[in-house]
Amino acid sequence: MTDTVIRIEGLDFRWPGAARSCLDIPSFQVERGEHLFLHGESGSGKTTLLNLLAGVLTPQSGQLELLGQNLKAMASARRDHYRVDHVGFIFQQFNLIPYLSALDNVLLPCRFSSRRRLRAEEQAGSQRDAAQSLLSHLDLNEGLWSRSATQLSVGQQQRVAAARALIGRPEIIIADEPTSALDAERQTAFLDLLRRECAAANATLLFVSHDKRLASGFSRQAAMAEINRIHGEGAA
């Protein structure tokens, strides 16, 4: 296996029906174990890039490799499977399913991916134990585990989302503005926790935000404006 977990070469993406491209990335790589802070204003194309990395969108041309596998060559069902096997996602806010308990939310990836389930069992004996240990590590005490997502504070919800991304040790964690709903003090605390757990799980972290102040503590920084040749209106 290569040490490059994300490799993009000559990627070009255009929304169907759009007059011009939205993303044009000549080259972009993320190495194994890196904690990369990707800075991007809204409209810089970062959301589109994340959807491409998730295999939900496919580029018109260019190479897009995740862990050495070409996403473009896969059928869409295979991409859905590959995504949950190898990537954990954390989004801005409200990213828990409201009718499931915190614990069941964390266990969701194990329901769709046998690889994540097996790795969770390997690590902690059972997927439940793995989820509980992750929740404890993220400072969520036992009393909160069975609560439904709506009964948790925004900060607690984000930590549950982080545990869900981390369960079963996927190689890549992609976080999209996960701290925007938190106050400054909690932002720092959450980022410390997230980086610590990614390091413990040996996961590569791709952290996307418009807020440059959060960049300290990451092993590398990049900006959408540098990697994407399209600027302004076309990108989204």
Binding site: D80, V84, F91, F94, I97, P98, R111, F112, R164
Partner: peptide
């Protein structure tokens, strides 16, 4: 919509 998007992020396909 958000619920369905979350399901997609944890591995659910459109089908």
């Amino acid at each position: 919509r958000r619920e369905l998007a979350i399901l997609r992020s944890v591995g659910a396909g459109p089908w």
